[in-house]
């Protein structure tokens, strides 16, 4: 009986979250909790507390895994993090592993969401993120560089910093394998919350084009003041 009692409000909550999902088609409808979280003043202390649950997979440093299972979150724009959380929560981005952690039960209300993303954004990034296999000077690197200039710069910028105002993620410093997976899912329609302009832009990319362009961006440096002093840096908040 005990478990039944605990179960029902939770299921109601989950169904409520699903029903609240915006209509498909608009990649960034916003509104509701997403807008609310964007405009609240964050409390970094509380953000640290909330982050503890995230740290189990994304690590206390927010660096994810170099091999790409979990992305680096450190340094990512707040607005991007909020949008992704809201999308996963609303069922607009399929991510069964992450799903329970995006629910209000795990994260808390809009204020808690604002707090945790502000905490994540200010974490220093890993100086050794997962890079693609082709260093500068290789043919594959040069091909990727050209593809990037022709297709990506307008939104993600020359340095890969994205655009805070428009919810475009920074992609510099992100792990190669993670980006390859997401790119493929965006191109092939599996990641449903992608900007349709990007889906259109990359629809004719071959698999090689995809690997080359992502390889290129992984070799673009991240500003030194955003990096941890060493790959051995440990987040002192989680000692």
């Amino acid at each position: 009986m005990k478990s039944t009692k605990a179960k029902h409000p939770f299921i109601a909550l989950a169904i409520g979250a699903l029903l609240a999902a915006p209509a498909l088609g608009d990649w960034n409808e916003g509104g509701g909790e997403q807008d609310e979280a964007l405009h609240l003043t964050p409390d970094l202390e509380n953000g640290m507390d909330v982050y503890e649950v995230c740290a189990a997979c994304h690590l206390p440093e927010g660096w994810g895994m170099t091999e790409g299972t979990f992305p680096q979150l450190a340094g990512q724009h707040r607005a991007v993090l909020i949008k992704q959380m809201a999308d996963i929560r609303a069922g607009n981005r399929d991510n069964p592993t992450m799903y329970p952690f995006a629910l209000p039960k795990a994260i808390g209300d809009a204020q808690a969401l604002a707090d945790v993303v502000a905490y994540i954004e200010q974490l220093p990034m890993t100086p050794e993120w997962g890079k693609g296999p082709w260093p500068p000077g290789t043919l594959e690197y040069t091909k990727g560089e050209q593809l990037y200039k022709d297709n990506c710069v307008q939104c993600h910028s020359e340095t890969g910093m994205g655009d805070v105002e428009k919810f475009y993620p920074r992609i510099n410093g992100q792990h190669y394998n993670y980006m390859v997976r997401q790119f493929e899912w965006i191109r092939d329609g599996k990641r449903r919350n992608a900007n349709p302009e990007m889906v259109e832009q990359i629809k004719n990319f071959s698999n090689d084009d995809m690997l080359h362009v992502i390889n290129y961006i992984t070799h673009v440096p991240v500003p030194a003041d955003q990096l941890a002093e060493s790959v051995d840096w440990k987040n002192p908040d989680f000692d």
Binding site: A6, K7, A56, F70
Partner: peptide, 22 residues
């Protein structure tokens, strides 16, 4: 159990799952 991220869903004591249906 920690480093492979089992702990995230099944809980630190392995009997406090984050979802009641885990």
């Amino acid at each position: 159990y920690k480093s492979k991220t089992c702990i995230a869903c099944h809980g630190a004591d392995a009997k406090t799952p984050i979802m009641p249906n885990y």
